[in-house]
Amino acid sequence: MNGLNPNAASQAAGALESGYNFAYLDEQTKRMIRRGLLKAVAVPGYQVPFGGREMPLPYGWGTGGMQLSAAILGADDVLKVIDQGADDTTNAVSIRRFFARTAGVATTTRTPEATVIQTRHRIPETPLHGEQILVFQVPIPEPLRFIEPSETETRTMHALGDYGVMHVKLYEDIATFGHIATSYAYPVTVDERYVMDPSPIPKFDNPKLHMSPALMLFGAGREKRLYAVPPFTEVVSLDFADHPFAVQRWEENCAFCGSHDSYLDELIVDDAGSKRFVCSDTDYCMQRREPFEPQQEVGQ
């Protein structure tokens, strides 16, 4: 839109809002969030409380991620927003539009061109590089929450590194089902210290957190917590020597691009319940199908 990045497809839906500060939040609030982010980067995996604001979108719909994005966006950033891996799911469209309207930043659907990627439930298949920041929307930031409902208790457990219950829970899964029965929001240890909830990404995406060149930021708006995984940080999924961590694999290939390595969504295509599998990461799928074609503008 403003021609800062000619490769980035811009899609200003509606005019730029004039009544609000750049990227909606006032500068004091952004500064407060950035201070929190600095702390989060300095203590990888530690949940930093922050004075989360009410956003004009409902809690649970990405307000945490949006506040972090608002705090880090600059005028020359190129923003990509995905939900379930896709750029064109309604909530991704809505959030991308929000920043196009309030910040006037260029937006893109192409992973390699984005400088800031806000995501819900996925990490893009295309490997990220060091000039990129991935912002996760987090519903429940506390990995111990479903074992211990009290925040006072869980903060103490983190302080003491008291994570035995977590392994007991995983062990009970194995004893009962023969497998660890956690398939998403699979807990990880960050930098050999804090156990962290990677947000509800499928465990398929967990290995992408490890030694990632891109900065990973996590924002939970309702719970008013933010945390981070700095570039090139060790992120290890919890497991046991005799039950090593493993990711999901499909016997099928993507019906569109034929990929056998990406995370596949299952679609039921007729009344008889026939199934097809397609890439959840729509941009990755598109890139494999049209590697040389210039990108079309979304929403045209």
């Binding site: 939900d83 379930q84 891996g85 799911t89 909530n91 439930h121 996925r122 398939s183 998403y184 929001a185 509800p200 990404i201 499928p202 465990k203 398929f204 999901q248 995370y263 596949l264 969504d265 299952e266 959840s280």
Partner: peptide, 8 residues
């Protein structure tokens, strides 16, 4: 949509 987690 929660279909990624549901798929898991």
């Amino acid at each position: 949509p929660h279909y990624v987690d549901f798929q898991s």
